[in-house]
Design a protein around this nucleic acid. Structure first.
Lengths: 153, 153
DNA sequence: TATCACGAAACAACAGAAGTTACATGAGCC
DNA sequence: GGCTCATGTAACTTCTGTTGTTTCGTGATA
């Protein structure tokens, strides 16, 4: 089953945006992600609605952070990209007549809900700026300067 | 994203198998699940390899439990159907050069791993027979006899 | 007014489970 | 032995949602 990489990609983009002190174009970002500008605009549109980024059109336009990374959690970004389905695992039938299947659903749903709750709780605890700090540590450990992070950036 | 219902379906089937004191044909099971016999055979094949069910060909053949439901956990069944991917959420790139993306991956992977571990731990704690007991309670609460559970069974 | 860059719609590509068809294999029954 | 039942298996199609792509409209800057 194909994975949904929107959260992952947008986090990547947000971190690079903070490094840059200028608007980044969809084309630049697309090159960075290995995809194309239309998809970038489509996905960033959700972040814009949440005020996490702002976009400007025309000459010198592009995408910039709408607020500091310390003021967004992974949960915020997850919701901003549309709160995609978390699990590939699912129930065969959501509202079955069969009592046996209802028992199966109850057990599975309860377990999935618990795992989902844990995941979202963790997401809510992690600020996007925490990832940047982790990145900074990695860079320091390798003796690199910040800004040379992405081969294609 | 379409869900993977194999675990859910096989649990449903196992519980019905226990009720029956005779082999169930793939066609019967397929009718119960609202699908077709070939798919049932394909999926049950995994359970047979694990010894959770046995199959007999020819006249009077079909599928039966290979061991008591008290001796299988949801985790066992999950593994028997091929340990399908749990998450629809995923990373954009598994082994990126970009340090920023590595930081993103580390955080996401850690959180997903934690949620996965919780899920599998819970699965390992639940015996299939526990679901049957839950089902029995439901039936009792509705004043029904066991055996009248599945409209199509 | 020419160019740049986003905005948005429409459509094709892709991946993996599910659904389907077809046929071979083996077990019981007459 | 031959018929029928049921599994075993392979090949192919369908379905669903993200991703990829193209195209054109709109607004901003020079």
């Amino acid at each position: 089953m194909r994975h949904d990489g929107r959260l992952s990609r947008m986090l990547h983009v947000l971190l690079h945006m903070e490094e840059q002190q200028r608007p980044m174009t969809s084309e630049e970002i697309a090159g960075m992600l290995g995809t194309n500008p239309a998809l970038v605009r489509r996905t960033l549109a959700g972040l814009r609605e949440g005020g996490y980024v702002v976009s400007e059109r025309g000459h010198g336009g592009g995408w910039m952070l709408g607020r500091p990374l310390a003021e967004m959690t992974l949960r915020d970004v997850y919701d901003a990209v549309g709160s995609p389905e978390i699990f590939a695992l699912g129930l065969a039938d959501d509202q079955p007549q069969c009592l046996v299947e209802q028992a199966v659903n109850t057990a599975l749903r309860q377990t999935l809900d618990e795992a989902r709750a844990l995941l979202l709780r963790r997401f809510a605890e992690i600020r996007v700026s925490d990832l940047r700090d982790d990145f900074a540590s990695r860079a320091a450990a390798l003796g690199l300067n910040v800004g040379l992070s992405c081969a294609d950036a």
